[in-house]
Simulated assay, not measured.
Amino acid sequence: MQIIKHKSKTNLYLLFTRWGRIGDGDGQHQLTPFSSLDECQKEFCKVFRQKTGNSWKDTDQFQTKPKKYTLIKLNERQMQKYTNVPIDFQQLQDDNQHPPSKLQSSIYKNFFKTFLNPQAIRTNLQKTELDVEWMPISQLRPETLQKARDILVQLNKDIEQKEKLKLTIQQSQCTEPKEKVESETQQTINDVQKSEFKCLLDSICKLTNEYYTIIPLQGYGDERLPMIDSVQAVKVQEQKLDDLVELELS
């Protein structure tokens, strides 16, 4: 959401809103004109509350609401763009044009050559499947990456508990009770286990959604995002986070 003042018309303000699925590079957008800044601001605050369940003036105390949009904190460092700086990329790639390295070890030389290789960086970035148009690497905060790790840790715990409970339920269903009293007791236990199992599934769905909110993947604009509902799926995402940390440092 953004308020835009028209360059030439003094009494024209536009409320720009854009929405879409995480990972969808296009999405949808809308421009609503207003004749005064006050009207535009009121509509902005109204839409913000409708979509998030929070007040715009209290964003420092923002609380995520069920089935509502949430805020994503981005890196606040300034990104300066210099469009008129001439760069000779061919010269940069020509080793003969570089000053001789003072490093004595060939291992260190190869390390820095690989570390600073733009093609290697692009290749590793593709492996992470991060939607860089929506979330550039430079905007990934360390706190965001740590929160993503914490989510994966909790997901792993829920998944392991779910698998144990699933096995217990399957075993109990294969065992026939000998007496009626035992049958009623077993039924109560089964009901509790099934309720706990459902809670675990709900938690896994919620955590998966929260994870994709802060670490959006590309290529899922028209497809369903894969559930992180297995230990192997968690390990895959952990590796992606490791790659993102290395890219963020580089």
Rank of each mutant, 00 (worst) to 15 (best):
Y69P: 00
E43L: 04
D26H: 10
L71E: 03
P100T: 11
E39H: 04
V47L: 15
K68I: 00
N75A: 07
S35A: 11
Q97P: 02
Y82V: 09
K109M: 04
P33W: 03
S106R: 08
F62C: 13
D60A: 12
Y108F: 15
Q104F: 09
K102V: 11
R18I: 08
Q104W: 09
F34V: 05
K109R: 10
D95N: 12
Q91M: 12
E76R: 09
K68W: 00
Q80S: 08
E76V: 10
Q61L: 05
D95M: 06
C45D: 13
F44I: 00
I72L: 15
P100L: 14
Q61D: 06
Y82R: 09
Q61C: 06
L71R: 04
T17F: 01
P33R: 02
L37V: 11
L74P: 02
E43Y: 04
Q63D: 01
I72M: 09
D58Y: 01
Q50F: 07
E76K: 14
Q93L: 08
G25V: 10
Q91R: 14
K73Q: 10
T83C: 11
T83V: 14
E43I: 02
T52H: 05
K81L: 12
I22D: 01
R77K: 14
G20H: 08
D60I: 07
T17K: 03
Q78A: 12
K57N: 03
S106V: 09
T70D: 04
